[in-house]
Design a binder for these strands. Structure first.
Lengths: 237, 237
DNA sequence: ATATTATAAGTGGTTGAACCACTGAACCAC
DNA sequence: GTGGTTCAGTGGTTCAACCACTTATAATAT
């Protein structure tokens, strides 16, 4: 979760709470095809207004959790068939920590996508974007913010909307869970080196190098994260 | 778009229409950071109730289009930074056809992801899933439905939630735009061969073969689609 | 008896008016 | 200046009622 030296200030709206409540209930206790109580019943059950329930349901519908059928009712969808990354994000945030299995999933697909994205970017990046890259590297933001900005720039320069939107997902996760990774100075240095090397590869328009450089840092990242996790498990077990 | 011999039957709900209307306006006429009119003003402008507007806004918020700030107003977000695949889907469906540039983006990332997914699946697939695969191949559905089912099974067997959810995006697009591709008998046969070959590779747990088989059919698909598009452009130009 | 057509009950979709809670700006007191 | 107060504008929530759609059932026609 995001670091907040003053502690959490829980200020959720009612319909947000209802979204979380219904989402948990759906995940833990219900099956695809099951019927949810009617809007009126849910409202009565939670002692809130029907309009508020409807806003929560609207969000769950957009996430692919449920299907609302006029005149019939509200039905659980099969999220393996209809779910999307936003739903996955919601599932992650319902817990306060990211499950190891999903983290592995995420790292694996990242290792496949991001290097190719960097290769594409090296071929399409503009002079202006190169200057932006330079500004990020020489700037004074935290390493986490720098790294996020670099990845976003890579995605933008790849000229592929799907890369951009998939990377947005990664970034939103890492913005909240990645601070831990960068608490280690070695990891900080490794990323700074990566940024500089990639900038050079971009300047030289060397797509092959951009690919291998990116792949390399991702493999390093994975090793460190797994080492961290196995350390936790060893201490606990 | 989905085939509909009776023509379009506009039966959208009010809030769905408002979502489409606002989305178009945001994409075409507004910039990130711009402020939308207040909920009350939008409701008055469109001559609908405020609750209906709020449901539309809720959806746009979930898609990453806008940010609603209590006491301040509604602001356009930078979709390149905050957008997700659902937003991209919406952008595609606002037109009646998929832009070539986005189609290229989609095919490219598909070529990178799906073979790896198939390789993973070959290592993790269960006996039960193999039987399901067999049932799909020997069944009598349309080739489009078969192909979608096969891809879904691959994703499920890959044991990676992100693969599953990203593939859901692809499938939802291809379900509506893919019928054109399978009108060609050659393309039908090519996919049937792919299904059978992949099933054999899965049975043999040969991940390398699963990878190359999948990659190969995707390259074929891309060639055919580009040939189709260039044919259109040549006839027009 | 069977097929067809009303009808009723239950569901989501929409409306209007009112009030609560938050934000920002202008103003005031110190 | 600094901090508190007030006020107008905004989103958040409530209430009560009605509209529109679906399904099952009862009434009717054949």
């Amino acid at each position: 979760m995001k670091k907040n030296t003053l502690g959490k200030i829980q200020k959720n709206t009612l319909h947000q709470q209802i979204v979380a409540l219904l989402a948990k209930r759906i995940i833990n206790q219900m099956q695809p095809g099951d019927k949810l109580p009617s809007e009126r019943d849910i409202a009565a059950l939670l002692d809130v207004n029907r309009a508020t329930v409807r806003e929560a349901l609207k969000k769950l519908e957009t996430l692919g959790f449920i299907e609302i059928r006029h005149g019939e009712g509200i039905f659980i969808k099969d999220y393996l068939t209809s779910g999307n990354l936003e739903l996955l994000k919601m599932m992650i945030y319902l817990n306060d920590t990211i499950p190891l299995s999903i983290l592995q999933n995420l790292l694996e697909i990242r290792r496949i996508i991001v290097p190719q994205m960097a290769a594409n970017a090296s071929e399409n990046i503009t002079r202006e974007e190169l200057q932006q890259f330079e500004a990020i590297v020489t700037g004074h933001d935290t390493i986490l913010e720098k790294d996020l900005a670099v990845h976003q720039l890579i995605a933008k320069a790849s000229r592929n909307l799907l890369y951009i939107f998939i990377l947005n997902f990664f970034n939103q996760i890492f913005r909240d869970f990645g601070y831990l990774y960068f608490e280690n100075p070695d990891n900080q240095k490794r990323s700074e080196i990566f940024h500089r090397e990639l900038l050079e590869a971009f300047k030289a328009k060397n797509s092959k190098k951009a690919y291998t450089i990116t792949r390399s840092v991702l493999e390093y990242t994975e090793k460190r994260i797994y080492a961290y996790y196995s350390q936790i498990y060893n201490n606990k077990g």
